[in-house]
Each structure stands twice: as C-alpha cells, then as structure tokens.
Design a protein around this nucleic acid. Structure first.
Lengths: 146, 146
DNA sequence: TGCATTTAAGTTGTGCACAATGTATATTTT
DNA sequence: AAAATATACATTGTGCACAACTTAAATGCA
C-alpha cells in the first residue's frame, strides 16, 4: 500500500534510490573499460553523440541530446578539447554559437569503442526481451517525470 | 539484434544513458521539494536511513546502506552537522569509529518529510503494480551488475 | 535606425562521487 | 610485548551537475 505511513520513508522502498544507485553502479562498471580510451563516462556520452553526427554540432544541440546545460558542458568540452578529442570553433554566420567537431583522434576512437555496448549488455545478464522491456518502462517513466 | 554493428553505439540504445538521465531527472524532481526542508538529495537519503535507525549509526554502516565511501560521506556529514541535522562523535570504545546521531532538529524534520514519498509516487504516474514490477527489475539488474 | 529582448555560451560557486593517499586506533601474529 | 596487519575515517585532487549570473551577438520592433 502507498500511504503516508511508516513504510513510505524507508530507503529500500524508494524508486529514486534504486535509480540513483544503479546510475552509480553503471558508472563504476564503465569506468575501467572507458579508462582504456582515456574517457570518463560523461565524455563517452558526448563521443556517442559525435560519432553518430554527420556534421558539426552546436553546444546547444549537444546539450539537448544529453540533457546537460552549458554550466556542465562548457568545461567538459574544454577538457575534451585539451585531450585532443574535439575542436571548438565559433560559427562564422552566428558568432554566438560554437561548433563541436571530432578530431582525427576522436574519430579514430570509435573503432576502439565498438565492443563496449555488447560487452556491457552481457554484464547485465538480461535477455534481449527483458532489456527492451526495461528500456520501454524507463522511457515511459522518463516521459512522465521529465 | 545485439551485435557490434552500427546501432550499438547509438546513444538512444544505451540502458546506462536511460539510468543516468532518470537519476538526474529524479534529482531535479526532488530538489524543489527538498529545498523546503533545506536538504539536498544525498542529504535526504542520509536522513531516510537515520529516521529509520533505532540507535546511532557508524559512518561505515551508513556508507554500506547508501553505497558511498568515506570520501563522499565525511564531507557530506560534516555539512549536515553544520546544518544542525546530526551530531558526529568518536566512539569511546573504539576511537576509530564515529557515531552519527540525529539532533532534535533532524528528528523533527521527519514529520515534514512524510508527504514526500506519496507525492513523488503520484508524479511518476505509475500504478502500484507497475512500480513494484519496475522495482523488481531494477533490483535484479542491481544484483547482476553490482 | 535605435533600443529592448532573446539567444548561445561562458563563468562562478556549491555539493556531490570517487580514486588515491594519509592518519590514528585496534587487532593479530610471532 | 613488539611488529605487522587490518580497520575506520579523513583529506586531497579531479570531474561532473546545476543554480545563478555574466557576456556578447543576433533578432524584433517601435
């Protein structure tokens, strides 16, 4: 039962705590694998977006895809530029925006990353059906609270 | 299909990205509600543990329940002590350990927090059955990767 | 055209997470 | 009992997240 009783304040009953812990667990799971590419987890997410992109992406577009604001993205992208993963250039047509492009090094990392999703899927020990089902439930939840 | 093909590196296909985003969304959902109690989300989790506890908890025990190490907990608990939420005292029997106890103020906040789980449950727009089902799937995943 | 408004990034400050290391106390081993 | 090991917590340093604010360029409109 869901009511304002004794049980509701128990840590173990909180969906948010499960998501918080799973997110941390995932991070820890990815960290050693990504270390081989010298990437942090958020940097990996940026790379995922850029590897898919067919043209330079503005910071704003990146932020929308990753649900991150410039307060997070600006320093993150600066660090990635320093690591020679990408370039940041002011758009000539609109000097407000900055275009993010992979460097050759950044592009070349894609090959080394291609095994990661499969490897991680195996670690979850989920069947493909269960994964799809879970994804669907999480998407629905995202839609409801996002 | 799961294989090392084109699709696997797509951001939208990553379970980890869903969890990462949902965790952030949850945080944002809780932030304004917790602000009324002057708590951050991790501080709220600490309070959930302490509100349930029948005796003072050692930092280590708290860390195990929350899956946080002392590098995170020590400064977090210090901030909470400063906010007059809890006290930190060296154990007389074992000077290595530190006992965490709620202050009266910390204890009194429990009443003000009692509406939060129910309120948050409503926001998710999930049925109780679906919530239980999702919780079960997430616990299973936790067990597999944790 | 001039000025207010909007838009795109960047900056500042706070609070986590966590790896790596340090410090002090307790326990175990010899 | 002395030395080695283990335990509990703290500290340092890096990298996010995000709120709040700033800066500069583009757009809208009187």
């Amino acid at each position: 039962m869901i009511s304002s009783g004794k049980e509701t304040l128990k840590l173990e009953n909180q969906l948010c705590f499960r998501l918080y812990n799973l997110s941390k667990s995932m991070n820890r799971l990815y960290a050693p694998v990504l270390k081989e590419l010298e990437l942090t987890y958020p940097q990996y997410l940026v790379m995922l977006v850029l590897w898919q992109a067919t043209e330079p992406l503005k910071v704003k577009a990146l932020g929308e895809k990753l649900d991150l604001d410039t307060g997070t993205l600006s320093p993150l992208l600066k660090r990635m530029e320093k690591l020679n993963l990408l370039s940041r250039n002011r758009n000539k047509e609109d000097e407000r925006s900055v275009e993010i492009k992979l460097t050759q090094h950044g592009q070349s990392l894609k090959t080394k990353a291609e095994h990661i999703p499969t490897q991680m899927f195996k670690v979850t020990k989920l069947s493909i059906d269960k994964l799809h089902n879970l994804n669907k439930m999480l998407d629905k939840l995202s839609e409801n609270i996002g």
